[in-house]
Simulated scan of single mutants.
Amino acid sequence: MSVRLYVGNLPKDTVQQEELQEVFGEASNSFSIKVIKDRKTGTCRGFAFVTVPNDEVADEIIEKYNGQTFRENALKIEKALPRNKGKGEEDSSKPEKEESSQARNSRPNKQKNKEATSSNKRRGKSNKKSKQPATSTNSSSSGATQPDPRWADELAKLKEMLSAVEK
């Protein structure tokens, strides 16, 4: 079964398949190379994929060429992660942080509002809600501040331990 290898840390200018074939040609005769390029500029995005016939050849290439310099850059070679179904090679290389608009729309409103506020701030707009003063949950008739309810039990235990030590 064929194995795909990720070849990273390539220079971000024009990298040709032939150049990489010369580099990996010593290890195996049967392999294919796909240099991933930017759609607009046509320059290398900094990585490529090499498909080799089996695990033994893959391990040999990783051992031999991982860390080797190519145009003053140390190559990073490892076995590629499986592709996502329905997406091409370029899509599978995108960071996992990106998400679809469908996933963004399924979030709770509170998180959507935070994102809208931060994007408005970047555009120079302000959110009317953000100008309202924060309401305090610490008000009581005695004037003492109340602990955060998430930590109230822990605080009560600490107070008991301190009073026991003082006695």
Score class of each variant (00 low, 15 high):
M1Y: 01
M1Q: 05
S2I: 00
V3A: 00
R4P: 00
L5T: 00
L5P: 00
L5R: 00
L5Q: 01
V7E: 01
V7C: 02
G8V: 02
G8P: 01
P11W: 03
K12N: 05
D13G: 03
D13T: 14
V15A: 02
E19N: 08
E19D: 14
L20C: 03
Q21V: 04
V23M: 07
F24M: 03
F24T: 01
N29V: 03
S30F: 11
F31P: 01
F31V: 03
S32D: 15
I33K: 02
K34E: 04
K34V: 09
I36V: 14
K37N: 13
K40S: 09
G42H: 09
G46L: 02
F47W: 06
V50M: 15
V52C: 07
P53S: 14
P53K: 09
N54Q: 04
E56T: 14
E60S: 11
I61A: 06
I61H: 04
I61V: 15
I62Q: 05
I62M: 09
I62K: 12
K64D: 12
N66R: 08
N66Y: 07
E72F: 14
A74Q: 14
L75G: 05
K76W: 10
I77H: 05
I77W: 07
E78F: 06
E78K: 15
K79S: 04
L81H: 12
L81Q: 11
L81C: 05
L81G: 05
L81I: 07
L81W: 06
P82Q: 12
P82F: 08
P82A: 13
P82W: 05
R83V: 07
K85D: 15
K85L: 13
G86F: 09
G86S: 07
K87Y: 13
E90N: 09
E90F: 05
D91C: 02
D91V: 08
D91A: 15
D91E: 15
S92H: 06
S92I: 03
S92R: 06
S92G: 12
S93G: 15
S93F: 02
K94S: 05
E96L: 05
E96K: 10
K97M: 02
K97Y: 08
K97R: 09
E98I: 09
E99H: 06
E99K: 04
S100Y: 01
S100V: 02
S101E: 11
Q102F: 11
A103F: 03
N105C: 09
N105R: 14
S106V: 00
R107D: 10
P108G: 12
N109C: 01
Q111H: 07
K112W: 03
A116M: 06
S118F: 07
K121S: 07
K121A: 11
S126Y: 03
S126R: 14
K128D: 05
K129I: 06
K129P: 00
S130D: 15
K131W: 02
K131A: 06
K131E: 13
P133H: 06
P133E: 10
T137M: 08
T137Y: 10
N138M: 08
S140G: 15
S141A: 10
S142F: 08
S142M: 05
G143C: 10
G143F: 10
G143W: 09
A144L: 10
A144Q: 14
Q146T: 14
D148F: 04
R150F: 03
W151T: 12
A152L: 08
D153G: 07
A156N: 12
A156M: 11
K157S: 14
L158Q: 13
L158D: 10
M161E: 13
M161I: 09
L162I: 11
S163W: 06
A164M: 11
K167H: 10
K167A: 08
K167P: 08
